[in-house]
Measured scan of single mutants.
Amino acid sequence: KLETFPLDVLVNTAAEDLPRGVDPSRKENHLSDEDFKAVFGMTRSAFANLPLWKQQNLKKEKGLF
């Protein structure tokens, strides 16, 4: 399991300012399950079932792209 970080560490943070080991294209993977659901309004599995373009739009909207 990946290390999780608080939302404010990941949202609207440039790649070079992210904690070590965080993939800038997969910031959402480093949210706790609770934060993930609070941000996206759905579970990880529901998010994973969305088309890629919709996932990317949601990530942009939430500052996690």
Rank of each mutant, 00 (worst) to 15 (best):
E61W: 08
R26P: 02
E28Q: 04
P24S: 07
K59Q: 03
W53A: 10
L2A: 13
F40A: 00
N49I: 12
D35F: 01
N57V: 14
E61G: 06
Q56Y: 11
L58N: 01
K60Y: 12
K62Q: 08
R20K: 15
T43E: 11
N57W: 12
G63V: 01
N57L: 14
Q55F: 00
L10K: 02
E28M: 03
E34D: 12
L64S: 02
P19H: 04
M42D: 00
F5W: 12
R44L: 04
A48C: 11
K62I: 08
A46K: 10
F36A: 00
E16K: 12
P6R: 02
F5V: 06
K60E: 11
K54T: 12
V9N: 05
D23I: 05
A15C: 15
A38C: 11
H30Q: 03
F65N: 12
A15L: 13
S25G: 10
T43M: 07
K60I: 14
K62V: 14
T13W: 10
G41E: 11
D17P: 05
L2H: 13
P24Q: 07
S32Q: 04
P19N: 03
G21V: 07
D8Y: 09
R26K: 11
K62L: 10
L64Q: 02
Q56S: 10
L10P: 02
K1G: 13
F40Q: 00
A38D: 10
N12T: 07
A38G: 08
L7W: 08
L18G: 04
R44G: 01
H30Y: 15
L2M: 12
P51N: 04
P19E: 04
P6V: 03
G41Y: 05
L2Y: 15
D17F: 09
T13M: 13
G41H: 11
G63C: 08
S45N: 13
T43C: 08
R26N: 11
N49F: 10
G41L: 09
A15I: 15
A14G: 08
H30A: 07
P6C: 05
S32R: 07
V22P: 03
L31G: 01
K62P: 01
S25M: 15
D35G: 04
K54N: 09
A15M: 11
A15D: 15
T4R: 08
A14L: 12
K1A: 14
A15N: 15
D23N: 09
E28R: 01
Q56R: 13
M42L: 06
P24V: 08
P6S: 07
P51G: 04
G41V: 04
E34C: 07
V39S: 04
L18F: 07
D8C: 13
N29Y: 11
P51W: 01
N29L: 15
K27E: 03
V39H: 05
P19I: 03
E16W: 02
Q56D: 13
D8T: 10
N12M: 08
K37H: 15
P19A: 03
G41W: 04
F5R: 03
E28S: 02
P24M: 07
F47P: 00
G63P: 01
L64I: 07
V22W: 04
A15H: 11
P51M: 02
H30I: 03
L58Q: 02
K62D: 01
L58K: 05
N12S: 09
D33K: 04
K27F: 05
L52I: 12
L64G: 02
A38N: 13
E34W: 08
L2G: 10
Q55M: 04
P6D: 07
P24R: 06
A48D: 10
F5S: 03
H30L: 05
V39P: 00
M42H: 01
A14M: 08
L64H: 03
G41Q: 13
N49S: 14
L7D: 02
G41M: 09
K59W: 05
D33M: 05
K60W: 11
K1H: 13
K27T: 09
F65D: 15
V22M: 05
L58E: 02
W53R: 08
K60S: 10
T13H: 07
K37N: 14
T43P: 09
E28P: 03
L7E: 03
V22T: 03
V11I: 14
D8Q: 11
A48P: 00
A15S: 12
D17N: 10
A48I: 09
V9H: 06
W53E: 12
A46F: 09
F40V: 01
F40L: 07
D23H: 06
A15E: 14
L64K: 01
A38V: 11
H30T: 03
D23A: 03
P6M: 03
N29V: 09
G21A: 08
A14K: 14
G41D: 09
K62H: 11
Q56P: 00
E3Y: 07
D35R: 01
K1S: 12
K37P: 02
K60L: 11
T13P: 07
V9G: 04
Q55V: 01
P51D: 06
L7Q: 04
K37L: 15
G63E: 04
N12L: 08
S32M: 04
S32A: 07
D8R: 08
K1V: 13
N12A: 08
Q55N: 00
K62Y: 09
V22D: 03
N12R: 08
R20A: 15
M42K: 01
K37V: 15
L31C: 02
D23M: 05
N29A: 15
F5E: 02
N49V: 12
P6Q: 05
P24K: 07
A48E: 11
L10R: 02
D33P: 07
T43D: 13
E16I: 12
Q56A: 13
G21N: 08
P24L: 07
L50W: 02
A14C: 14
L52W: 13
M42R: 01
S25K: 13
K27V: 15
K60V: 12
S45C: 14
F36I: 01
T43Q: 07
N57M: 15
R20Q: 15
M42E: 00
N29E: 14
G63A: 04
L2F: 15
L58H: 03
R44N: 01
L2S: 11
D35K: 02
F40G: 00
L58M: 12
V39W: 04
E34K: 11
D35T: 07
E28C: 04
D33L: 06
S25H: 15
E61Y: 06
D17L: 10
T4E: 07
W53Q: 09
L7S: 03
E3Q: 13
F65Q: 12
E61S: 11
E3F: 08
R44S: 03
W53S: 09
E28L: 04
L18W: 05
A48N: 12
L7Y: 15
H30V: 03
A14Y: 07
E61R: 08
L18Y: 06
D23W: 04
Q56L: 13
N29F: 12
E28H: 03
Q56I: 15
E16A: 12
G63W: 03
G63I: 01
V11K: 10
D23V: 05
M42V: 05
S32L: 04
K1P: 13
P24I: 08
T4Y: 15
P6K: 03
N57I: 12
A14R: 13
D35W: 02
V22R: 02
V11N: 05
T43N: 11
V11P: 02
E3T: 11
S25R: 12
F47C: 00
Q56T: 13
K59H: 01
L58D: 01
V11A: 11
A38E: 13
D8H: 15
E16Q: 11
P19K: 02
E3H: 10
V39M: 07
L31D: 01
P6I: 03
V22A: 04
L7C: 07
K59V: 06
L10T: 02
T4K: 09
A14T: 11
S45K: 12
K60G: 05
T13A: 11
V11S: 07
A48M: 13
Q55R: 09
T4D: 04
K54V: 13
K60P: 00
N12V: 07
Q55D: 00
D35E: 08
S32G: 06
A48K: 12
A15P: 14
N12I: 06
G21W: 07
D17A: 09
S45P: 08
G21M: 06
L58W: 04
L18T: 05
K1D: 13
S32V: 04
R26A: 10
S32T: 12
G41K: 09
W53I: 09
L18N: 04
A46I: 09
D17E: 11
A14I: 09
F36S: 00
E61V: 09
V9M: 14
P6G: 06
V9C: 11
P19F: 01
V11C: 08
D35Y: 01
G63Q: 05
R20G: 12
D33Q: 05
S32H: 05
N57Q: 14
N12F: 06
T13K: 12
K60D: 06
L52Y: 13
P51T: 05
L7P: 06
A46W: 06
L7I: 13
F40N: 00
H30E: 03
F5Y: 15
V22F: 04
R44P: 05
N29D: 15
T13Y: 07
F5T: 02
E3K: 11
R26T: 08
K59L: 08
F36K: 00
L18I: 05
N29Q: 15
S25A: 15
K1I: 12
N57E: 15
V9W: 12
K60N: 07
L64T: 01
L50G: 00
L64V: 04
